[in-house]
Nucleic acid binder design. Structure first.
Length: 285
DNA sequence: CCCGTAGCAACGGGTCTCTT
DNA sequence: AAGAGACCCGTTGCTACGGG
């Protein structure tokens, strides 16, 4: 996919890229081998330099170089090439304002292992962990999770970042993470009906009364959100290549979801709902 | 509630193309 | 070879939306 991308190069927009494809080009190598394209010699020369550099950056596994140059609506093209080193992340906080609110828990799925971080326990270890990844996948993380993390830890997250909110938005699919999961018929099991606000209530319950079951329910919800990001990314990628002008691209197959190390406690959920009848997902009913 | 992102529309400026 | 016009990239300002 990436090897037929040109709109990350200076002076190449989507129109010019489409013209390149129409000339029968489907790989940077085609340009380097001198395939005839309808541009001035100066532009062709620039293109050759760009393709050479792109080949090198792909070989060196440098997703950040591409991410910095690709328009937001095309960041999904990076995915299959840099899957080996991805963190699917989701954070829970005490509210939406990064100036005054705390991070309570973080879930990170890297395709092999689920890692969780809890305030007052091991939250500080997240700083070292996130530095290991060259690519992040999130939902609305560009607006929420990453700025929050940067402010909270006082760090700069430099990884390439595919934000699924915008991957789906450019496909005309909106309605928030839960809405999109529902659109695809993805099951949330015991965490069905829980939302971000309910996560705040779960954290308060854990902090005020030391109820471990409340924390475990929160982590179950948090982990589910991060783990689901992988299959959502795959669905988003497949939808994008389906509507791509060239149809020889292989769709990615779904991956098995890892076992959630935490489980939601229905009794805790019910108890909180009784006390906050207007809170959380209860509002919907 | 608050905030950052990106899409849209409008526009400026640079480059390529076509004509003479 | 030069100039006018067409085309397209990239910027700016505005708005909608999603996170807990």
């Amino acid at each position: 996919m990436l090897e037929r991308t040109f709109c990350h190069l200076k002076g190449i927009g989507n129109t010019t890229e489409a013209k390149i494809w129409e000339s029968g080009v489907s790989h940077w190598n085609d340009i380097l081998e001198g395939t005839d394209i309808p541009f001035s010699p100066a532009k062709v020369n620039e293109l050759e330099i760009g393709c050479g550099e792109s080949l090198k950056r792909l070989k060196e596994y440098d997703p950040i170089w591409f991410a910095d140059r690709l328009p937001a609506s095309d960041q999904w093209r990076l995915y299959p090439h840099f899957r080996k080193n991805i963190a699917y992340i989701d954070i829970e906080t005490t509210g939406t304002d990064a100036h005054c609110c705390d991070i309570t828990t973080i879930a990170l799925w890297n395709g092999r292992e689920v890692k969780t971080y809890v305030q007052g326990r091991n939250l500080h270890e997240f700083e070292e962990e996130i530095a290991k990844y060259q690519m992040i996948v999130s939902f609305n993380g560009k607006c929420f999770d990453v700025p929050f993390i940067e402010k909270y830890f006082g760090i700069k997250v430099k990884a390439a970042h595919i934000d699924l909110r915008f991957v789906f938005r450019s496909l005309g699919i909106t309605g928030g993470l839960k809405g999109i999961e529902h659109y695809f018929g993805m099951d949330r099991g015991d965490a069905e009906g829980l939302d971000g606000y309910f996560a705040v209530l779960l954290w308060n319950e854990y902090e005020m009364s030391g109820n471990e079951k409340a924390l475990e329910t929160l982590l179950a919800y948090n982990v589910l959100d991060s783990v689901n990001l992988e299959n959502l990314m795959i669905r988003g990628y497949n939808l994008h290549i389906e509507r791509f002008p060239q149809h020889d691209l292989e769709p990615l197959s779904k991956v098995p979801e890892p076992l959630n190390p935490f489980k939601a406690h229905i009794d805790v959920v019910e108890s909180i709902r009784r006390r906050y009848p207007s809170g959380g997902a209860f509002r919907k009913f």
